[in-house]
């Protein structure tokens, strides 16, 4: 597995983390009603989208480099 393939695995793990962070922060907001947690949930959700956009960009930019 090349660095390119491992990076894709890493991006997927990052996406899972940001989604988890969104859910965690929202649950904390529901529990504490703290606006900080709501802001964190929104930021994490936006970051999830950014990770997705980056993943597409990465695949496009490195399409000529092998996965092996």
């Amino acid at each position: 597995m090349s660095l390119k393939a491992f990076h894709i695995v890493f991006v997927l793990a990052t996406l899972a983390l940001t989604l988890f962070l969104t859910v965690w922060a929202y649950q904390e907001f529901a529990r504490t009603q703290s606006s900080n947690h709501l802001t964190a949930a929104i930021c994490a959700a936006v970051t999830s989208l950014m990770v997705l956009v980056y993943g597409r960009f990465f695949l496009k930019k490195l399409k000529h480099i092998s996965y092996q």
Binding site: F6, H7, F10, L17, L21, W24
Partner: peptide, 24 residues
């Protein structure tokens, strides 16, 4: 550089698991 990058990715991946487990 690829080899050092693979190691670095592993180290970062470990943190991706460590962060929610320890902090959240």
């Amino acid at each position: 550089i690829e080899i050092s990058g693979l190691f670095w990715h592993f180290v970062d991946l470990v943190w991706i698991f460590l962060f929610p487990v320890l902090y959240l």
